[in-house]
Amino acid sequence: MRVVVCVKHVPDIQQPRSLRADGLLVRGGDDDTLNELDEDAVEAGLRTAEAAGFPAEGHDVTVLTVGPSAAVESLRRGLAMGASTAVHVHDDAVAGSDAIATARVLAAAVAKLHAEQPVDVVVAGMAALDGLTSLVPAALAELLGWPQLTLADRIEVADGVVSVRRETSTDVEELTAPTPAVLSVTDQAFRARFPNFKGIMAARKKPVTTWTLSDLDLAGTAVGAAGSATRVVNAAERPERPDRVLVTGDAETVPALVDYLSQKGFV
């Protein structure tokens, strides 16, 4: 079984984050980290491969990222959790890609991996906590022409068929599709394992392959700002909410609160 897990290196959401004058997110801080939701994707990928015999010979879990040089740290984290190989697509032309352009790079990388050794499933997280678009997994499926099974909370692969369970806003669904397929997972079902010391040490020795756009036969115009059909034209820090009120007390505070709700038209 071959599993590819897409992981993104993002600014730590617990730290102040900001946008540059050109509207792009400030990246490259010391606290930048593996997108938390992609830890669940790595976990899901590992469990899926383990069910087929990974880490025995012939099975592989590859972590894949598209990002700046520091993104290799997120790959190391995935390797420390147990992934066997890592691929880093790193090319200055990729900076400033929107979600669809990013998916284009990921698709080219997955296609190259697939040509080398067939991939059974690609697993992504439910969202990257920087842009929070949740566009990439579906775009990736469309680009690869592989079936899309997103927001899974249970995954089984057997005899060339992937089965997932997922919850939509209204339904619980069980879907199946032939492999290879593109999956994303929620943060509900795949609580990520914590890398142990042995894993962290082993990760240092595992291979990380670096590809540029030319390795992927992608033109610079297909990615970055040139390959993105969206552009941030204005970005401003939001002012604090004006006229904020803070009162202290218990039941005696209630009449004034109800007056406030009433003024706003909620009563």
Partner: peptide, 19 residues
């Protein structure tokens, strides 16, 4: 919604739309 955004993503790939 998740569903709406996924529709947008696939349509963008097919048509060159920006999302």
């Amino acid at each position: 919604t998740f569903e709406g955004r996924e529709v947008a993503a696939r349509l963008a790939v097919r048509t060159g739309a920006g999302v």
